[in-house]
Amino acid sequence: MNRQTRKSGRRSPVASVALLLVGLFATGGAYAAFTATTASASVDLSSPEVINQGQKLFAANCATCHGQQAQGTQNGPSLIGVGAASVDFQVGTGRMPMQASGPQAPSKPVQFEDSQIKALAAYVASLAPGPAIPSESQISGGDVAAGGELFRINCAMCHNVAGAGGALTEGKYAPVLKGVAPVHVYEAMLTGPQNMPAFNDLNLSPEDKKNIIAYLQYNEQNPSAGGLELGSLGPVSEGLFLWIFGLGGIVALTVWITAKSN
């Protein structure tokens, strides 16, 4: 009741909380540092051990649909010649391994560590020549204005001018581009995953691809000057907002104005 004596030091009531916090930060930080080092460690895609590791992962996780030699089965296409870029995109965005068959494989939480994805990519790339994973210099430093124009002409039809995504036929769709890593955007353009057409280097030069990525990055880093974006969906979300909040709010005001005072 009147134990007013101040407890300090390790007997303080907050000491255990502080200790807990320190512990959590230490383990969390160590884990983050550990995973960060594995992620940034460059994997040599041509080394036999890596290819070997990839083959094992492939046999365990992919072969059911794509075949033991990646030659394809009734349930999945052949992966011979699709290249490392394709694997890095499909597995790196969580689309593969596919969860359920449907019109399109949705992106979902990534199932493998980065080194494993690279190993899988190395294995598939070793089967036949194909598009490689782009380097850092291929995906940074583009011209935003040129990229915007290219994006509107080549991408906006399906992905919407603001990259908000759009519908395709029979339940297929062009996904939202916000939050997609530049390397994955590049790989998608290069390999044309799922229902997307491939934009090869004659169609969109490496410079063009770099510019498009720069435009997307600009949009991601610079939110709308006008305020809330309402999902960047255009007049539909604007109309809904106006009817629900605009007119709704004003009708509430009319009721308030004409209410009889008590």
Binding site: A156, M157, G166, G234, V236, E238, G239
Partner: peptide
């Protein structure tokens, strides 16, 4: 005249 964005709609009253 060539591009048309996905989600191209008129304002609500022409919808």
């Amino acid at each position: 005249p060539s591009p048309v964005s996905a989600g191209t709609q008129p304002d609500w009253y022409i919808g």
